[in-house]
């Protein structure tokens, strides 16, 4: 079966040195660091600490 273009791109991606950006749990970055992979953890939290009511208000108030 012929490889899809997506598969080819993925293979090419892993054939070169990786610089990885992670968002979310610190564990994602920690595991990669232990494997000596260059990784940057983005300091991000969901708006209003994940409170859906406040997040909805904020979106309506233009924040």
């Amino acid at each position: 079966m012929e490889k899809s273009r997506l598969d080819s791109d993925a293979e090419m991606l892993f054939e070169q040195p990786l610089d990885i950006l992670t968002i979310g749990l610190d564990g994602f970055a920690d595991d990669l660091s232990k494997l000596e992979v260059a990784v940057t953890q983005l300091d991000w939290r969901p708006p209003a600490d994940g409170d859906p009511v406040l997040a909805d208000l904020l979106s309506k108030l233009g924040s």
Partner: peptide, 10 residues
Amino acid sequence: IDIRRVVEIG
């Protein structure tokens, strides 16, 4: 200080 920013980013 914008109360929207305080609440949004915690």
